[in-house]
């Protein structure tokens, strides 16, 4: 590993970070390296340890093992110096419901003793404006919708200029416009030089806005790098459209692939898909074999290496959570 010892250009750096809840290992031996200036996607299915990691990074939970530094300072030791430079959204928004959105933000801003009181009103209003809550600023939060609360949570992270934003599933509960606006907001902030660490279980979202990505699975970091690096590790796949699905399955199995039938509503043709590995025959050999076996091939596509395939390969398929 090179460059890791030089933590100066890393916004977040953890070594061997771990957290146990009783016997359960929620985060295990995590070595994160988030470059400054990156939009870093922290990807993983439900329960994979994203929020737990974020809590440790922000000094809310004490690690069971390992060390971490945020903005080149040790956490949680330097929390008082680091956190004013970090805007955070952790596991959804939380506010006092009987206070207005504006009063809630004012309270949180005054909680930070390092903020400038004279600019408080202006900064609070600007943050509300940025997330489109300008009109609802004086409404009590209990009258906010889920998405409005989420926006208010993001506004809290933007109360002052931040060097790092840590956003835990920021688009949760947002409508399509809201999602797009958050994406644009993140891009705009990144362009100004803010590092953004954003967690999500939605690959598509990460793919659209991130330069780097780390993938968590059952508490372990299973991949980390730029989006391109991760994509390049992916494998191509083939899809065969044919009415003779069972024969096609047999042929592809014989050729060393691990085919599966893709569920398809209606139509008499089935789709048989398979992932290409380094040792499997080239696609043209597959067509040859299929045709030779009498499979009526009505369509054949080769799919380029995709992040989705990589994500599924890393974190497992299906609805059941690992662990």
């Amino acid at each position: 590993m090179t460059g890791v010892s030089d933590t100066g250009d890393l916004a977040i750096h953890t070594t061997g970070l771990g957290k146990s809840f009783g016997k359960r290992r929620a985060v295990n031996n995590l070595d994160l390296a988030v470059p400054r200036g990156s939009v870093f996607g922290f990807l993983g299915p439900n329960g994979s340890g994203k929020t737990t990691t974020i809590r440790m990074l922000l000094g809310l939970a004490t690690p069971s093992s390992g060390t971490m530094s945020v903005l080149s300072q040790p956490m949680p030791a330097a929390a008082g110096e680091v956190l004013p430079k970090v805007g955070a959204l952790v596991e959804g928004p939380a506010f006092h419901l009987f206070l207005s959105g504006r009063a809630n933000l004012t309270r949180l801003d005054s909680a930070d003793s390092t903020t400038d009181r004279s600019t408080r009103t202006r900064r609070v209003d600007a943050a509300l404006e940025k997330v489109g809550l300008g009109k609802s600023a004086r409404v009590p939060v209990h009258a906010y919708s889920l998405g409005m609360k989420q926006r208010l949570g993001i506004a809290n992270a933007l109360l002052r200029e931040r060097e790092l934003l840590v956003l835990d599933e920021p688009t949760n509960g947002l409508d399509p416009q809201g999602t797009r606006e958050v994406r644009h907001l993140i891009s705009a902030l990144a362009e100004e030089g803010t590092t953004v660490f954003v967690s999500s279980h939605l690959l598509s979202e990460i793919e659209q806005m991130c330069s780097h990505v780390a993938v968590m699975s059952a508490g372990n970091l299973v991949a980390q790098g730029t989006l391109e690096q991760l994509r390049a590790q992916g494998r191509r796949g083939v899809k065969v459209a044919t009415p003779d699905t069972s024969v096609a399955m047999a042929v592809l199995s014989r050729l060393g692939l691990d085919p599966h039938i893709e569920p398809l509503p209606g139509g008499e043709d089935g789709i048989v898909g398979a992932v290409l590995g380094p040792e499997t025959p080239e696609p043209e050999r597959l067509v040859e074999g299929l045709v030779a076996a009498g499979v009526r091939v009505r369509g054949f596509t080769v799919q380029p290496a995709s992040l989705e395939e990589r994500f599924v390969a890393l974190t497992g398929e299906g609805f059941d959570l690992v662990q």
Partner: peptide, 17 residues
């Protein structure tokens, strides 16, 4: 209970304060 504690602490307010 209302979750606001995590936002106070990350504002940040030191715990003794």
């Amino acid at each position: 209970g209302s979750g606001t504690l995590r936002y106070l602490l990350t504002a940040p307010v030191s715990r003794p304060r």
